[in-house]
Measured scan of single mutants.
Amino acid sequence: LDITFHVDGKNIHVHGASEEVVRIIEELIKNNARAEEIKETLERLLR
C-alpha cells in the first residue's frame, strides 16, 4: 500500500488511501501529531 500525504498551508492532500484513512490522517495532523505517530497509526490500521 502506497500512501502519500503532504501539508500545504492548511490543506492536507492524501493520495492512495480510503476516505476513512484520509479522515484519520487529517485528524492526526490537526492534532499536531508527529510524522512518526501518523506512520505508526497507519501501520496499525493497515495490518
Rank of each mutant, 00 (worst) to 15 (best):
A33M: 08
G16T: 04
V7D: 03
I29C: 03
E26P: 00
E19W: 15
E37R: 09
E43G: 13
L28Q: 04
V21N: 03
H13S: 07
N32W: 12
L28Y: 05
L45V: 06
G9L: 02
V14E: 00
T4H: 10
S18V: 04
E27G: 10
E26C: 08
E36Y: 13
I24Y: 10
S18G: 06
I38E: 01
L42D: 00
V21K: 01
L45Y: 07
L46W: 11
A17E: 01
L28A: 05
E27D: 13
V7K: 02
V21D: 05
R44C: 04
N32D: 10
S18R: 05
N11K: 12
N11P: 13
V21P: 00
E36F: 13
I29Q: 02
I24Q: 08
D2C: 13
N31L: 13
S18H: 05
A17Q: 01
I38C: 01
E43S: 15
E20M: 11
I29W: 04
G16I: 04
K30N: 07
R47E: 09
D8Y: 07
K30W: 13
G16W: 06
G16Q: 07
V22W: 10
V14N: 00
K10Y: 14
V22D: 00
E20Q: 10
N31K: 11
S18L: 04
I38L: 07
V14C: 02
D8P: 01
E27C: 06
I38T: 02
E43Y: 15
A33K: 08
R44K: 07
G9D: 05
K10M: 15
K39I: 15
L46I: 07
E40I: 12
A33C: 06
S18F: 04
I25R: 00
N31I: 07
H13K: 05
I38N: 01
A35R: 05
E36C: 06
L28I: 03
N32E: 07
K10G: 09
D2H: 14
I38Y: 03
R23F: 12
E36K: 08
I25V: 09
R23V: 05
V21F: 09
R47K: 11
R47M: 15
L42P: 00
S18D: 07
A35D: 04
R23S: 08
K10N: 11
D2N: 11
R44G: 04
R34N: 11
K39H: 12
V14T: 02
K30V: 08
T41H: 08
L42I: 12
L45F: 07
V21E: 03
V22A: 05
L1T: 10
H6R: 09
E27K: 10
E36L: 09
N32P: 03
E19C: 04
L46S: 04
K30T: 08
L46C: 04
N32Y: 12
V22M: 06
H15W: 15
E43T: 15
V7C: 06
L46R: 06
R44S: 07
I38F: 05
L42Y: 03
A35G: 09
I3Y: 15
I29Y: 03
V21W: 12
T4P: 01
K39R: 14
V7H: 05
K39E: 14
I38P: 00
E36T: 09
D2K: 11
K39P: 01
I3D: 02
G9W: 03
E26V: 13
E20P: 05
I38Q: 01
R47F: 14
